[in-house]
Nucleic acid binder design. Structure first.
Lengths: 124, 124
DNA sequence: CGATATATATCGCTATACGAGGTATGGAGC
DNA sequence: GCTCCATACCTCGTATAGCGATATATATCG
């Protein structure tokens, strides 16, 4: 266990750091991912959790996706419709609006810029 | 001005959205950038603001960099020393520790994963 | 009738970036 | 000497987003 014998390289504390880092990275990343997925066709919250979970390696929490979708709709980037199902509870399908596609394109450009920048920084 | 005539594609509100998005993106990104720059040699807060400003297009605020550096030091990833200058106020030079390099390498891997993922999502 | 899977929503907590404000040092101009 | 400015550090309050926990409802299966 070595509880506190090796502070400078304690792998356990590094894991914690990385976990928190990835949590922060998701702020901004998830909006992009949701818009990108919706740009390929409509979907709904519960389904997005599993599709994005496949991408990300870990599920995004319900407490994340539903507020996120509400936000995007309030901001006019996506729209929703209720779909009554023959079996099971109703689904709220979201689809991307033209404004959402514009924003997505801008985000994609900015993302590419940032990636180029990081390559430049890490490989001098 | 068209204050509210074109909600779905209002470029002004899109700019606001993108501005907020980039703010959120920086959460996590800046830690990476600071560690990456420090991995190439020691530096100090005030200097980091302008070097990273060049990279990012906009300066990072002083209220961002100083707490960030304190945090990284508290977490044992970087260390600092005071340098008295012949002219002007003293500088607090930060340098990366071995544990910081390990974390930086892990972040780089994860970042590459995420970039591949985004490419897969946006180009089906 | 209770357990489970599906599906949506909300609340409180935490972490981080930023703007505004504060402190201090030393050089240039009046 | 005195004021202005660039350099250099720090801290506080605000806003935002992800997450875990919790609540609710529908339909199916045993």
């Amino acid at each position: 266990m070595s509880p506190s014998s090796n502070p400078p390289s304690d792998p356990e504390s590094h894991d914690l750091f990385l976990k928190r880092w990835q949590l922060q990275l998701r702020k901004g990343l998830l909006v992009y991912l949701v818009l990108a997925v919706l740009s390929e066709g409509e979907s709904y919250g519960y389904r997005l959790i599993s599709s994005l979970g496949d991408y990300l390696g870990s599920d995004m929490a319900e407490g994340t996706i539903y507020p996120l979708l509400s936000r995007l709709q309030r901001q006019g980037l996506i729209e929703s419709r209720w779909q009554i199902m023959d079996s099971g509870p109703a689904r709220k399908y979201y689809s991307i609006k033209p404004g959402g596609r514009e924003v997505l394109a801008a985000m994609k450009d900015r993302w590419e810029q940032i990636h180029q920048l990081l390559k430049r920084v890490s490989t001098p």
